[in-house]
Amino acid sequence: MPIFQSATYGYSGDGNEELIGYTRPADSPNHFALARIIATLEGTEGAVVLSSGMAAISSTLLTLLRPGEHLLIQHATYGGTNELVHAELLSLGIEHTAVDPADPASWEAAIRPNTKVFYVESISNPLIGVADLEAVAAFSKQRGLTPVVDNTFATPVLLTPARLGFIVIHSATKYLNGHSDIMAGAVAGPADFIAMVREKMVVYGGVLDPHACWLLQRGLATLALRVRQQTASALALAQFMEQHPQVEAVNYPGLPSSKFHGLAQTLFGGFGGGVLSFEVKGGSSTADALLKALELPLIAPSLGGVESLITIPSATSHAALGVEGRKAAGISESLIRLSVGIEGTEDLLADFAQAFKTIANGSANNSTLAQLKVS
């Protein structure tokens, strides 16, 4: 597909001037082609691509909610989503109640007569929990709610939530593109709903440019290959971490020991995705030392790219929550999140092994030095 790098189009005089005139409504050939691919992957009637994942989330929620209405939202959502709901939507008179997406028994008490939307993430960040999507879909249908899911972490390779009735959102910056070189978002769902999201996008200006559309379409060609490699390596690393004496805890639904393993089997065929998080013994200083000792993963935010990325959420994605907010969400100051890339699995395992050995030796040296100073 060529790149139609035009902001505006001249009239041809053939009576079809309304088809393509100006790029802000996302109606270039690149936008149309990309939207068709994403709709096909998710199994929906339509899709629209936007300038970022947050543009996709905000346009969707502003389409579904009006002042005076209420939504259920899972606790500990992505930091940008949390800020949107707690600040921007509240300022518009749209209220919310946070619920546990894996505890259906708790939802009834949270619902109100003006509740309109149930918003969840298929795999949560950074504790890698799994929402009970089948229960969310059934509850939403029973109570007349619109279920919305951020499917960024799972991707349509592992899960297609539209078959359960969900509106599907992606930060396409992540896995769908996969190369860490664009910002993009996507929404997939019924054609009439997508038309309304497009109107919001046009008004708020969240359009993706044609060149980024082309890059995202190129990235989608290798989506399944990348996700399979990333998922296989993530499982191997999670198993390695689970047995390592320097690791306090591992969060990964592909592990049988995870409380989310049953949901992962049902929804993802037993796979756990390409992201895991873990806590090392020794607190935040040890976590910092581990990141510095690694050679392959880049210390950087974001996820889903071909390169492994590692970060401490308390200092990046969830810094805005504050210490107390993170504590309430179960996010420790020493929690490490790893987005696994497509590097060789054995290379990644070897790198983590040497990094753990390095910090262990460093701790031993520091201990010896302290003893010498005391003596």
Rank of each mutant, 00 (worst) to 15 (best):
H261M: 06
L176W: 01
E242Y: 01
A234H: 08
L225Q: 13
G189W: 04
G254P: 08
M201S: 10
T286S: 15
D209S: 06
E279W: 04
Y252L: 06
G272E: 03
A264I: 10
P245I: 05
A212P: 03
S257E: 09
L176V: 02
A195D: 01
L208H: 03
L263P: 01
G270K: 12
A264D: 00
H170P: 00
R198W: 07
E248W: 13
V187Q: 07
H244K: 04
L263M: 12
N251M: 13
M183A: 14
A238C: 09
V207C: 10
F193L: 15
A191P: 00
S285Y: 03
G272P: 08
G206Q: 05
Q243K: 12
P190T: 10
K259D: 01
F240Q: 10
A264M: 04
L220F: 03
G185W: 06
L223E: 15
A232K: 14
F268L: 10
A221H: 07
M241H: 01
G254Y: 03
A238D: 10
F193M: 11
G219W: 13
M201N: 02
P190K: 14
A172N: 04
F271Q: 14
D181W: 09
P210D: 09
G206M: 00
V202E: 03
N251D: 03
Q217N: 02
V187E: 04
Y175G: 05
R218L: 08
F240A: 05
G272T: 11
I194W: 08
V207F: 12
H179M: 08
A184F: 13
S258F: 00
G270R: 04
V202N: 09
E242Q: 03
S233C: 13
W214D: 08
V203Q: 02
G269F: 06
A195R: 15
M201Y: 08
L263S: 06
R198D: 01
V280I: 13
G283A: 15
L255K: 06
G272Q: 00
A249F: 13
D209T: 13
G270S: 14
A264Y: 01
A232H: 14
Y204R: 06
F260S: 08
N251R: 15
A188L: 06
A221D: 02
G269Y: 10
Q217C: 01
P253H: 01
V202S: 04
G274W: 05
A212N: 10
H261F: 05
R198N: 02
E248Q: 15
G254V: 14
P256Q: 11
H170R: 04
S171K: 04
P190V: 02
G282Y: 11
S180C: 00
M183R: 11
I194D: 03
G206K: 00
Q229E: 09
Q265H: 15
Q265D: 14
P256V: 02
V187G: 05
